[in-house]
């Protein structure tokens, strides 16, 4: 990234190749919408280019990337606040067709869909720590750097997020 900052914009291609999947994964689990996530990946990389001078090289590139990505998620959430729609599981079922899920029993599939919906109903604050920890496999230390808080605060947040998720998920199971 420091090379990009110094003017070698071609190096951005390398960064894209290395990180776009991870970034897409984060944005997908934050938005539950693959199309919007692709748009957001594009926006994050655009902002990296535009604001490359703000990358100091002190923290890691990954931390900086998540900083930008979180802002893009917030911006996009504000934009779609009124027309908020949760992406339906059926929408992406074709996209992941052939994946490990295809052969699994229907019930399991429904459970996962419900869990995903429960995740989508979490507050953004709780959702992001779970996504970072579970899907992005970031350590608490890294999450703390991204969120600019202490590791202890991250632990408490993950704990609360898990409790909230359990509550929502179990409720939806009972109401099935």
């Amino acid at each position: 990234m420091l090379k990009v900052k110094a003017g070698d914009l071609n190096k951005m291609g390398l960064l894209f190749e290395r990180y776009h999947r991870e970034l897409f994964g984060f944005l997908y689990h934050m938005s539950s919408n693959p199309d919007a996530s692709e748009d957001m990946v594009q926006t994050v990389f655009y902002r990296m280019l535009k604001y490359r001078h703000t990358f100091t090289g002190e923290g890691s590139f990954r931390t900086w990337m998540y900083h930008l990505a979180r802002n893009v998620v917030i911006d996009s959430a504000q934009q779609h606040k009124r027309s908020a729609r949760h992406h339906d599981v059926a929408d992406y079922a074709e996209r992941i067709g052939g994946g490990p899920m295809a052969d699994e029993p229907l019930q399991k599939e429904q459970e996962l869909a419900m869990l995903e919906k429960a995740l989508a109903r979490l507050s953004a604050e709780h959702r992001e720590v779970l996504v970072m920890s579970r899907y992005q496999e970031l350590k608490y230390e890294e999450i703390a750097r991204i969120l600019s808080c202490t590791e202890g605060a991250v632990k408490v947040r993950v704990h609360r997020a898990m409790n909230e998720l359990k509550k929502i998920y179990l409720n939806s199971e009972y109401n099935r």
């Binding site: 894209f16 897409f24 996530s37 692709e38 992406y92 992941i96 996962l112 869990l115 579970r134």
Partner: peptide, 18 residues
Amino acid sequence: LWQQLKAVPTPAPGPAMR
């Protein structure tokens, strides 16, 4: 719950993104 969460699939980005 933690294991189930991991089982929630992440789709791959479309080729148009690149």
